[in-house]
């Protein structure tokens, strides 16, 4: 393979590896409700998400992660009864953690009031993409590997030159 293509592959691979660690803030939500049954965020991302949810009042809240079909059912029926969440974190006043999304798809992160008595609830939810971004990281690693494999002759030449210089030739 052409030495230029091999070096280009390594360079683009390194750039992709750096991009894979770029922080990605998806969205924030300030839940401030008394009567709302649910407040939620549509999340579309590849890979996992980092969620930080903090109650700003004394109430506790519940977090549910729904797939796209369950999201449509929830919106259609306005009830969580017939909905099967992928993940349920109930009755907490603070949650910080990485949520593993099973597949690359659209998801709905729902926040509800844990208390059955209607009361003012304020929750601040922030979602980031978890780093490294898996596809970017994988592509970057593959490009570097291709560049190194096909450019090994040049790398060996460079190493030999260094060796010769050390030996004083």
């Amino acid at each position: 393979m052409n030495a230029g293509i091999s070096k280009s592959s390594i360079l683009i691979g390194v750039i992709l590896l750096l991009i894979s660690f770029a922080p990605g803030h998806i969205t924030s939500l300030d839940v401030d409700s008394e009567d709302a049954l649910y407040t939620g965020l549509l999340v579309m991302t590849n890979g996992d998400i980092l969620v930080e949810a903090i109650a700003l009042t004394n109430n506790s809240f519940s977090l549910y992660l729904l797939d796209f079909d369950s999201c449509l059912r929830l919106v259609d029926e306005e009830s969580l009864t017939n909905v099967t969440p992928i993940l349920a974190i109930e009755d907490v006043d603070r949650y910080v953690g990485i949520i593993d999304l099973p597949t690359d798809d659209a998801y709905f992160l729902v926040v509800t009031n844990s208390s059955t008595i209607p009361s003012v609830m304020r929750v601040q939810v922030t979602i980031w993409r978890a780093t490294p971004h898996p596809r970017v990281f994988a592509l970057g690693s593959i490009l570097i590997a291709i560049g190194v494999i096909f450019g090994r002759k040049q790398i060996l030449d460079i190493l030999n030159q260094i060796q010769r210089k050390r030996n004083g030739d």
């Binding site: 969205t27 407040t39 939620g40 965020l41 999340v43 919106v75 659209a106």
Partner: peptide, 20 residues
């Protein structure tokens, strides 16, 4: 991408989510 409960236009909201 914020979606709240308590709307009258449920079909409109479902269409919006699908569009997104």
């Amino acid at each position: 991408t914020e979606i709240y409960s308590g709307t009258d236009d449920i079909s409109g909201r479902v269409n919006y989510i699908t569009d997104v």
